[in-house]
């Protein structure tokens, strides 16, 4: 039986009729049409589906859609600060070559934005620890770590 769920996604209120056995990931991708959040494993092992649920990074594949009533969700589509204004992390990922195939990128960006919200000046070790649940098969992580460091610096210097 479908349940009605009211939820705020990227600042917009949605009223959704959901089957209880649909993951938040599938709801976002199929019901809401936000396909930026990716499914790399569907079982919590890769982080490609990371979104912020009330500000906290979670694997949306391991959350049921019916559980998020009353919550605020931020996805990659909502990370940008304005039509022409990227989030400093998005800009840093572009400049530093942190996205190759890009399939892992939305998940990394959401995780990294949660990380910087919590710890604006992380060490390299803290960054590596923070993104340990996000798999990238293309980059070897070097450039992702560099991009997160650069974004943190940019934010600190007020550049972004």
């Amino acid at each position: 039986m479908k349940r009605i769920v009211e939820v705020t996604i990227n600042g917009e209120r949605h009223e959704l009729a959901l089957e209880p056995y649909r993951s938040l990931l599938d709801v976002l991708r199929n019901d809401v049409g936000l396909t930026g959040t990716k499914k790399g494993c569907d079982v919590g092992d890769c982080g490609a589906c990371t979104v912020l649920l009330d500000g906290k990074p979670v694997n949306s594949c391991l959350v049921l859609g019916v559980e998020v009533g009353g919550s605020e969700i931020l996805t990659i589509e909502g990370l940008q600060r304005g039509p022409e204004r990227l989030h400093p992390l998005q800009d840093a990922f572009m400049r530093h070559g942190a996205a190759q195939c890009g399939f892992c990128t939305p998940g990394f960006l959401m995780m990294a934005s949660a990380l910087l919200d919590e710890n604006p000046a992380p060490t390299e070790e803290e960054i590596r620890f923070g993104i340990a649940g996000n798999i990238c098969r293309c980059t070897g992580y070097t450039k992702i770590v560099a991009a997160i460091q650069a974004a943190a610096r940019d934010k600190a210097e007020g550049k972004a």
Partner: peptide, 18 residues
């Protein structure tokens, strides 16, 4: 600046599964 990357960092790049 890689032209293909803007879609990837904003979630708008379309993959077959999308």
């Amino acid at each position: 600046k890689r032209t293909d990357v803007i879609g990837k960092v904003t979630g708008t790049a379309r993959y077959a599964g999308d």
